[in-house]
Write a protein that binds this DNA or RNA. Sequence first.
RNA 1: GGUCCCAUCGUCUAACGGUUAGGACACCGGGUUUUCAUCCCGGCAAUAGGAGUUCGAUUCUCCUUGGGAUCACCA
Length: 474
Amino acid sequence: MMVKTRFAPSPTGFLHVGGVRTALFAWLVAKQAHGQFVLRVEDTDRNRHVEESEQHIVNSLDWLGIKPDEGPFRQSERLEIYQLWAQKLIKNGRAYADTTTEAELDKLRQAAKDAKKPFLFRHHRPEKSPAWVPGMSLRFKSEPKAYTWHDEVMGDFTSGQESIDDFIVIKSDGFPTYNFAHIIDDHLGGITHVIRSQEFLPSMPKFLNLYDALKINFPKFATLPYVLGADGHKKLSKRDGAKDILDYKRQGYLPGALVSFLATLGWNDGTEQEIFSVDELIEKFDLKRVGHSGAKFDEQRLLWVNGHFLRETPANKLSELAEPFWPANAKSSEALYKTAVLELVQERIKYLAELPELTSFFFEEPNDSTIYQLFTQPSDKQLKKLQLSELVTLLRASETELADSDFSLSDIETKLNGLLDKLATKPGILFAAIRIAVSGAKSSPQLFGTLNVLGKEISLARLKHARELLETKA
RNA sequence: GGUCCCAUCGUCUAACGGUUAGGACACCGGGUUUUCAUCCCGGCAAUAGGAGUUCGAUUCUCCUUGGGAUCACCA
């Protein structure tokens, strides 16, 4: 039988890393078995429905390369199907119209709570209920029994009849509940592996009871532990500030990095490998090696993974990816120039949205007061010992020396190393001074490359400008 | 409260019942003869507690503690 998995989000907002990981694992299971992956939108709650949500979910998965083979299906478009199965249930005496009001329900629940007893609706089943017609809610008539089942991740479970109860299958608005619809859709869709997060585990017995009533065979189940928020120990949720997965796209994270990071959040292959390509994941992923406990979402680690992927990206590909991230004043710059700049910062950039702060001085003159401040209050210990007049001398000498250079990388190196000997000064001093003059930044990419990319004209002009700045203040 | 799930460095995690409890992120230190970064080397740092089974327990069992989920006409 062909393996078929699904991801079934409800369109109530954006997708966050927790949801994405569930989708990823389901997708990996399908791809590994050369099976199919289905996207199903569980839009049966009209109150919580968010219009743009479905498109957002599709876009998110698409960005990550998690492409559905089928779907997106919408449950809201399959109402007749659920009606049909509901009738089947009624015919078999396994569902009844429920006319209990909300107030009555509250009262029953409160009474159970006061008595410190669990609330079970089946203890309050009406003796006889009216024939079910649309506009009424329909409740499943459970037949409590013990169950034993296997979970591909968590192992074997047993449950007693105390955890089985009657529950609503069709709401009074005519829409099915999750509890009902997902079972029918999975069955009709030929889903072989139901992979979902932990919050559904306590509901398993009642699901199983419904499978039985519907005469549907159990699929395989796989329960994934939670992804937890970084701050607390609670499951990641939008309420607690979980980020939209597309925020990572906007920040210049690479989909491959997210995928690798998310895959290893709760799973590993037993080796010491830390970074995985998608192909490796498809080959190596194994539900049996998914951990049982929740995993905190650690942005630091994601940052590291992303930096790794960024460094591995070929130059031409990186240029393409970086295009939307350049600072505004880079617009008029030539592609060749930007590529050269990018090459210089590639090893230090963690996410592409850092590009402006890392590269701004390549596109605009550094700020005078920043330069002045860096010279007068340097963080560098060696620089700190120098008088302004000494700095002026260093800068002037650099100008003279570089005026003769053809500004090739090797010549810049030769000239400046030569100057080091001439002035009998330390690289830590001379090069730091040049760096500040030219970049107005306390750190920058390697100096010779920076000068080379900036070019002779600009480099010399900035050296001169910085020197004059110091002279007027000296 | 009932039911259920979980428990190894700060974090992600590894360890056929036998290891100096391993790796990675973060942090700290050193090196790669300019800074930062990369890369390399090194350091810090963990089996929640208690019983039991066993020659031997991170690993199996039970209890305690702690954390979490769930008990909706939400999914």
